[in-house]
């Protein structure tokens, strides 16, 4: 499966990533991929990723421009985004 991931605000700045295309083998992991499982997968990249995605910072996820919770399922072709709680207004 192929997905696109966007990072915003503190995540983008600290991870030095604003967007990436991620390709995963079409196995059982991909077919049951949730926001939480994707976070844990990406967190294996380094200590910084671990700290930003699975650490103390609250990270919100969106799929195809809609806010979702950690258990939301990700499908092939989805646009996923990770960001800190919002602070507009």
């Amino acid at each position: 499966m192929k997905i696109k991931i966007f990072y915003f605000a503190r995540l983008k700045e600290t991870l030095k990533f604003s967007t990436e295309d991620l390709e995963l083998p079409d196995d059982a992991f991909a077919s049951t991929l949730t926001i939480l499982k994707l976070k844990a997968h990406l967190a294996k990249r380094s200590d910084v990723w671990q700290q930003m995605l699975m650490g103390k910072l609250k990270v919100r996820g969106a799929i195809n421009h809609a806010l979702v919770d950690d258990n939301a399922l990700i499908s092939d072709g989805d646009e996923v985004a990770f960001f800190p709680p919002v602070t507009g207004g």
């Binding site: 915003f8 503190r10 806010l67 919002v86 602070t87 507009g88 207004g89």
Partner: peptide, 11 residues
């Protein structure tokens, strides 16, 4: 709702 759900971030 804007303050808690619209994706804006302030620095």
């Amino acid at each position: 709702y804007l303050k808690t759900e619209a994706p804006f971030w302030k620095k």
